[in-house]
Each structure stands twice: as C-alpha cells, then as structure tokens.
Design a protein around this nucleic acid. Sequence first.
DNA 1: CCAATTTGACCTGG
DNA 2: CCAGGTCAAATTGG
Length: 287
Amino acid sequence: MASPPRFVATDLKRVIGELKSGREIADQLRLMLRGHDAITALPARGLVGKVLDSFTRSISILSGEVSQTPASEGLKFDDSGEICKRPSAQKDRRGRYKRRKTSETWIKESSTLFEDGHAWRKYGQKVILNAKHPRNYFRCTHKFDQGCQASKQVQMTRDDPPLYRTTYHGQHSCKNLINSSSSRIIDAATQDNSSVIWSFGTSQPEGHYRAGDGDSVIDVPAENKGEDKSVILSPIYNQLGAAFSSGSVGDVLSSDVYSCTTSTHNMGMEIDLDSVFGDCLEFESLP
DNA sequence: CCAATTTGACCTGG
DNA sequence: CCAGGTCAAATTGG
C-alpha cells in the first residue's frame, strides 16, 4: 500500500559505497586471520571468504542496476564513429579508478633484479620527485583471470652500486607460478643477490633497517651485466616461505639479511611470516 | 594475431 | 593543487 521503495542513483551509489567499505573491513579481517593458528582460523577464513564474496556480488548487482538505469549519470558518451584521436579524454573514467586500499606491504631491496615464480604485468611508470629513476608499477598477470590482487612497485634507488627497491602489496591468490623448480629459483636468488633485505609492515619501513642499508650489508660485486634495465621481476615469497619454515634458509641464503618489522597491529611476526609466505590460500570462490 | 609494454592522460588522497 | 597511482589507446614483439 505504501509507496514502494524508490531509489535514485545517489542512493545506489551510497549503498555501493557502504558495501565497498564493508568488503574492505571484511578483507582486513581476513588479513588479521592470517596471523592466527590455522586450526582455529580455518573455518573463520572460509566464512570471511564467503562474506567477501557476498559483498562483491552485491556490489556487482547494484552496479549493474545503476548502469541499467536510463536516467542515471552513466551517460553514454556519444560515439559517432568519428576518428577520435583522443578518446581517452572523452571517456568517463570516474568511479572506475581504484586506488590501492590499505593492505599489507613489504619491501625487498636487492642489488639486482631476478625472476620469481610469478607473472607480472607492467601497467605504469612514473617519475618520482627527487628520484633519479622512475618507479615501475606491476600487477599480477592473473588479476582478471583469477582475481589476484597482488601488485608491486619496483624502483632503482641507487645507481653506482645498483640497488632496487621492490614494494609488494597484497597476496597472490592465483595458483600460477612460472614453471621452474623452487631450488633453482633459490639458487638463482643466491647467485644474484648476495644481499637481500626484506622488510614487512604497513608503515614507512626505512627507519627500521636503516642500519643494514649501508654498504656493509649491501655488498655485491658490481660486475653485473647491465643488460636488463627494463626487465624487472620480483622475488619468490612462496619458495622463500618454504625455506623459512623448513629452516634451510640459513644454508641457502647465508649472506642475505632479512629484516622484519611487524605492522602497527598486534600480529605476531613469525606467524605472520608463515602465513604470508606459505600459502596460496584457496578460498573456493564459486560453488 | 594476440598479448605485453609504452606512454600520456586521468584520478585521488594528502 | 600536486605528487603519485592507475587506466587504456597505441605500439611493439613473439
């Protein structure tokens, strides 16, 4: 009898925004659960995964409704089939831009670039202020295949003794690894990186291992062939995680230096390390 | 021919 | 407003 609920596009946007924030919070909860025991956290992880899935589905449904609404803001820009040399200027990209959320971040500094087990796709490069070298932006190749949210940034921070800083964001949820044995990768890591510094945390990590940032730690023969300037690939946390838990990392990477700093939260580091590295977690996404 | 990279415009948080 | 992060058309390479 009462008037049926009528929503305008503004309401839909607000609802979508609420759902997105809810999904973000659920994702943070998922990240926190990684730091707990697998036995107790396993069912919770499954539930959180379903919650995330539900949020995502709801958002997509509502987004579809918004785009269906004829009077909504989503106007189709007139496509006259003209030879538009600059279609990007007309395309409405508002709302499509997704800046990285607050996800866990860790940094690796290495004297060289080496391949890892993951496939990356470069999607951008920016000149950074007061930086001699540009920063390169990569995302997982399987971002759209499997919804893998992992990304990284690589930037050369030092020239004379070459030093690359790689910043990772998010975990790999994809199962695709470059076809190579883990021992081989670790061996390559040993050869190419006599000094490696890892740092974990969500805040600025520079202050934590600044002591190890000197030449005493990073001491590598600068006889590298400077051929590969643009090929920037990154480390193998999965394999390294296995090495960590098996305790053989000391043998394999004896000269490396790992600096870990916990985030501002109360997650234990070792547990975090294990869960961060070890699993390519599989949330069964679809029944 | 398809997929990855390049590159400049676009978008957003601080 | 600006610096940094992202998008996507054009280009390149296998």
